[in-house]
C-alpha cells in the first residue's frame, strides 16, 4: 500500500488531538487493569517464588534453626517417596471418577429437565441444592446421617432389602468420598449441560424431524455434537475445582484408612501442617505445579476454544 500523509491539523482545528492525548486515552483504558493484576501477582505469584526457594532447603518448623540449603535433595525425596506417588494416583483416580460419574449423571438429569413438566422449576431448585451445600457440611452429612453403619439411612435401606450393614467410610473410603463429590458436582454438570441443551435452536431439531430422524437419532446426531463444547467445559471446570478437593476428605476419612484417600492437597497438608516439613512440602508443591501446568496448558487452550465459540464479540 502507498503511504499516506499524516493528518494535517489545520489552523482552525480546536478538536485536533495530538498523539499524546491518544496515548493518554489508551492508558486511561488500560490503567483499570493494573490494580487487579498487581494484586494477583502479589498474592499468588510471589508466594510461589518462595515455594521454589524453600524447596531447595531443609527446614522443619518445629526445630528452629534447622533451615539450610540442600540443593535438589527434597526433589530426590519427592521422586523416591512412594507416599507421594500413592497420593498422585489417588488424586487422579478420585478426580477422574468424580468428574466422569457426575458428568454422566448430570447429562441424564439435564435431559430430564430439558422438557417441560409440572414443577420443573422446583425440581431444578432441589437439584442444585447439593452444590450450594458447604463441602465441609457435605462430608459431615454423608459420613454421619447417610453412611453411618448403624444409624445411617443407606444402611437402613440396605437392611430393608436384607443386606447386612456396611461401614462404608472405612470399608470403601474411596467410593464414599467419590459419592460425596459426585453428589455435590452432578448439579454443576447438569446446569452446564442444560444450558447447552437449551441453547439448541429449535429449528434445527425440527429440520431433523422433518428429515425423518427419530428422537434417538436426533439426540445422537444433532444434540450430542452440539453439547460437546459444553461437556468439555463442564468436565474441565469440574476437574479444576476437584483436583483441589480437601474439605470432604478432611471431614470424612482424614486421608485414610492408611493412605487410601490421601490425595495431593491432603498429602501436602499433612507434610506441611502436621509434619511441619517446609522444605519437603515446598518441593512437593513445585512438582505438583509443574504437573498441573502441563495439564492446565492443554485445558486452557480448550477453554479458549469454548469461550471463543460462545462469545459473540471478542
Amino acid at each position: 500500500m502507498a503511504t499516506f500523509a499524516p493528518p494535517r491539523p489545520g489552523p482552525m482545528t480546536p478538536g485536533a488531538r495530538p498523539p499524546a492525548a491518544a496515548r493518554r486515552e489508551a492508558w486511561q483504558r488500560r490503567l483499570p487493569l493494573t490494580p487487579a493484576l498487581l494484586f494477583m501477582i502479589f498474592v499468588t505469584q510471589i508466594p510461589f517464588v518462595f515455594t521454589v526457594i524453600f524447596s531447595f532447603q531443609s527446614w522443619n518448623l518445629v526445630r528452629p534453626g534447622s533451615q539450610h540449603w540442600v540443593g535438589l535433595g527434597n526433589y530426590a525425596n519427592v521422586f523416591t517417596d512412594s507416599a507421594f506417588r500413592g497420593a498422585l494416583f489417588t488424586e487422579i483416580e478420585m478426580t477422574v471418577l468424580a468428574v466422569a460419574i457426575s458428568m454422566v449423571l448430570g447429562i441424564g438429569l439435564a435431559v430430564l429437565l430439558d422438557r417441560k413438566f409440572p414443577g420443573r422449576g422446583i425440581v431444578r431448585t432441589l437439584l442444585i441444592a447439593p452444590f450450594l451445600v458447604m463441602p465441609t457440611v457435605a462430608g459431615l452429612l454423608w459420613k454421619t446421617t447417610m453412611l453411618d453403619p448403624v444409624y445411617g439411612i443407606v444402611n437402613y435401606l440396605l437392611r430393608l432389602v436384607g443386606v447386612a450393614p456396611v461401614d462404608f467410610v472405612s470399608r470403601f473410603p474411596m467410593a464414599s468420598i467419590v459419592t460425596v463429590l459426585v453428589w455435590q458436582w452432578t448439579p454443576f454438570m447438569m446446569l452446564i449441560v442444560l444450558a447447552g441443551l437449551q441453547s439448541q435452536s429449535g429449528e434445527v431439531l425440527e429440520a431433523a424431524r422433518v428429515d425423518g430422524a427419530g428422537p434417538w437419532t436426533t439426540f445422537r446426531a444433532i444434540t450430542v455434537p452440539h453439547l460437546r463444547p459444553y461437556i468439555e467445559l463442564g468436565g474441565l471446570l469440574g476437574a479444576i475445582y476437584l483436583v483441589n478437593t480437601f474439605d470432604v476428605i478432611f471431614m470424612t476419612t482424614q486421608g485414610g484408612p492408611g493412605t487410601a484417600t490421601t490425595n495431593l492437597p491432603y498429602y501436602l497438608y499433612q507434610r506441611a501442617f502436621l509434619g511441619f516439613d517446609v522444605g519437603q512440602a515446598s518441593a512437593l508443591g513445585v512438582v505438583t505445579v509443574i504437573g498441573t501446568i502441563a495439564v492446565a496448558s492443554v485445558a486452557l487452550r480448550m477453554l479458549f476454544t469454548v469461550f471463543s465459540t460462545t462469545e459473540g464479540r471478542a
Binding site: M40, F48, V49, T51, F54, V243, V278, T288, T292, A296
Partner: peptide, 20 residues
Amino acid sequence: FFISTKMLPVVAAIIPIYLA
C-alpha cells in the same frame, strides 16, 4: 494469567503464605 492462577493448586503457595 488470571485464569491460570485459578488452575494452580492452592497448596503450592500455602507454605510461604503461611510463613509470611
